[in-house]
Design a binder for these strands. Structure first.
Lengths: 327, 327
DNA sequence: TTGTACGCGTTATCAT
DNA sequence: ATGATAACGCGTACAA
C-alpha cells in the first residue's frame, strides 16, 4: 500500500508537506505542490480513510437511515441527500433500517462505531424516540418524520396543511360526504393529516362522522381496498375520500371499480405523496406531492451545519396539489 | 473517547488482554474475561473502526453499488444482501451510482479509499467494463448483470431461458403473431432476453418478423406505450407481445386499452421482473419473476468467499412464470 | 495465561 | 515555506 511517506520520498519532501498538499493548505510553494501532485499521480496514491479518521475523528462520510427501500417515496429524497453531500465533498451511505425494531440494535451499533460524521434519520418518530442518548451525541437531523417538541433540527412539509388542502379541493368540487382513510396514527404524519382533514371539514361547517373514518393500520393497497369496501357498504356512502397514502388511494380505486362503480364519478379519490405509480395507474391519481428532492437537499444542508457545530432551526417546505383524473 | 487502555485500567489488565477478549481469543481465563466485559459495560466502550481497520486493513463493511434507487427491482435484492451480510457480522452499505457515467469517478474514489472489504456490483455491464483495474483489485462480485467472459463471480438468472419460457407460454396459448418490446441492447439482459425470444420462435418453426421487434431504448412506461401504438398500427398487428420489463408491459397495456382494445383478448401482454406494480395494475400482469432475495443472498455469500480468498464460481438461479390476467 | 512494546497511515504542533 | 515527530486506538509478536 502506498502511503504519504512514499509520496514524500518520490517528491523529495517531508510527509508533512504531502499532507499539506493533500488538504489544500495555502502555505505550500506552487512548485512544491506540483512536484507532490506529480508524485501522487505516478504512484497512484489514495488516502486511507481509516488513518485519516483515526487522526482527525472525521470521515467525511454521513449516513442516512432509510426505513424501507421498497418504498419509492425515499428514492428521490436520497438523491437530494446524495447530491447535496457530494457538493460539499461528503459521501453519503445508506442503511436500510427495515422498519423493524429488531434491527434497531444493529443500527445502534453502526452509529456507535465512531464512524460517521453525522446521520439523517427518516425513521418514524416512534423509532426515533427509542434511539438512545449516547447515539444521539453525533450530529443528527430528521427528514420527513420527526419527534415533535424535540430540539432536533428537521425538514418536512406541513402535513396538516397539505391534508387540509386536499380536502378543501374536494369541498370546492362540491363534495359534502368526504371520508378519510388513515394508516396508523402512531405515525406523526398520520396524526397530522387526520388533523388537516378535520380542519377542512370544520372550516366548511361540516360535522365529522365516525363511520367515515377508516384507520387501517398500514399503507399497503389491499388495506385501501378493505377501507373502500367498508365505506361503500354504508347506508349513506361518501362521495369522496381522502387517503393518507397513494397506495391506499389506489386500493380504494380498485375496490370501487371492482364494485361496478366509477372513479371519480361515484367516488372521488385523493391520495398523498405522488409516488411514481400515481401517474401510471388508471385513472391517474389526484394527490399531494412532496418536494422530495428538496427535502433531501435541505436535510443534508442542515446536517452539514450541525457537523460544523451550528444548531440550525428546522425548515418546512411547500407541498403541491397535483390534479389528475381520480378527483 | 473511551479506548482499550481505559477498559484495561478499570479491569486491572493489559490492553492486550482487552483486545483478546474483544476478538474472542480463546486463551483468556473465564474470570478475566468477565472482569473485562464488565469494565466495557460500565465504561460503555465501543470499538473504533478506524483504528481497527488501520491495524488489520479490514472493516467488516461491504458496499453494494445500486444503479437506481427508484427501481423497486433492487429493493428486495438489497434485503437479501443485507440479511446475508449481517448473518456473517458484516455491515452492508449502499451507494446510488445513478446510472450516470458522470458519477463513475466519484464511485471509483469511494472504492479507492481502501475502505470496504468488498463490493457487490449491480451496474449494467457497460458500466462494469469501465471500472478500472486498480479498483477491481478488491474482492468484487456481480449480481444480476455481469460482464460475460470475465473471471468475476456473479449470480443471476438465465435471462435467455426465462425469456424463452415467457414466449413458449404465449405459443402454448395459441398465439402465432408475437412481438417483442426490447429496451436497450447494450444491456446484457436485453441481448439475452431477445435471444430467448428468438429461441422460442425458432423452436415453434415461426419466422422472425422485423416489424414485430420494437427496440425503444429504455424501460420507462411511455416507451412501452409508444411501442404498442406502433405495433397496433401494423397491417397485421401481433396478438401477443413480450416486453422485457414490467414497466414496458404496462405502458403497452395502457396504449392498447386507450385504443379501445382489450387485454388480453385483443393483445396478450407478458412482462419481466414482477415488480410490485405488476400485481397492483389492472389487468394484473403475467410476468417472469426473479428470485430477488435469493439473488442478493447468494451474491453476498459469493462475496464473503472472495474476501476469504477463495474464487467461487458463478451461480444461476431459477426464475418463475407468474400467470395473472394480462396473458 | 498475561503483559510490553511497536507500527499501521495520517495530521498537527513546534521548530527551523 | 518546510521538516521532524508525537499522537490517534488497536492488534500482535515476543517475552515472561
Amino acid at each position: 500500500m502506498v502511503a504519504v511517506v512514499d509520496v514524500a520520498r518520490v517528491a523529495g519532501v517531508s510527509t508533512a508537506t504531502v499532507s499539506r498538499v493533500l488538504n489544500g493548505h495555502p502555505s505550500v510553494r506552487e512548485e512544491t505542490r506540483q512536484r507532490v501532485e506529480a508524485a501522487m499521480q505516478s504512484l497512484n496514491y489514495r488516502v486511507t480513510v481509516a488513518a485519516r479518521s483515526l487522526r482527525t475523528s472525521r470521515t467525511r462520510m454521513v449516513l442516512a437511515l432509510v426505513p424501507d427501500f421498497a418504498n419509492p417515496y425515499y428514492a428521490e429524497i436520497v438523491r437530494g441527500l446524495g447530491a447535496s453531500a457530494r457538493e460539499h465533498d461528503y459521501e453519503l451511505l445508506l442503511c436500510d433500517t427495515g422498519l423493524s425494531e429488531a434491527r434497531e440494535r444493529t443500527v445502534a451499533q453502526m452509529l456507535n462505531r465512531h464512524f460517521y460524521d453525522g446521520v439523517v434519520c427518516m425513521d418514524p418518530y416512534t423509532t426515533q424516540q427509542m434511539v438512545s442518548e449516547e447515539v444521539r451525541s453525533l450530529p443528527w437531523v430528521a427528514c420527513s418524520e420527526f419527534v415533535p417538541d424535540e430540539q432536533i433540527p428537521h425538514v418536512s412539509i406541513d402535513h396538516r396543511l397539505a391534508a387540509k388542502d386536499a380536502v378543501l379541493y374536494l369541498l370546492a368540487k362540491g363534495h359534502r360526504r368526504i371520508a378519510l382513510i388513515n394508516s396508523d396514527e402512531r405515525y406523526l404524519y398520520a396524526q397530522q393529516r387526520r388533523d388537516g382533514y378535520r380542519d377542512a371539514l370544520r372550516e366548511a361547517g361540516l360535522q365529522e362522522r365516525a363511520d367515515y373514518i377508516q384507520i387501517v393500520g398500514g399503507i399497503d393497497h389491499p388495506l385501501g381496498e378493505l377501507a373502500a369496501r367498508r365505506l361503500l357498504a354504508l347506508d349513506q356512502p361518501p362521495t369522496a375520500v381522502f387517503a393518507v397514502a397513494d397506495t391506499l388511494a389506489i386500493g380504494a380505486i380498485k375496490a370501487t371499480m371492482a364494485s361496478g362503480r366509477q372513479v371519480p364519478d361515484d367516488l372521488a379519490v385523493v391520495g398523498f405523496d405522488d409516488v411514481p405509480l400515481a401517474s401510471i395507474f388508471e385513472p391517474a391519481l389526484t394527490t399531494i406531492a412532496q418536494p422530495r428532492r428538496e427535502l433531501g437537499e435541505h436535510a443534508m444542508q442542515l446536517l452539514l451545519r450541525r457537523i460544523a457545530g451550528e444548531m440550525p432551526s428546522s425548515v418546512t417546505l411547500a407541498h403541491t396539489l397535483v390534479v389528475r383524473r381520480s378527483a
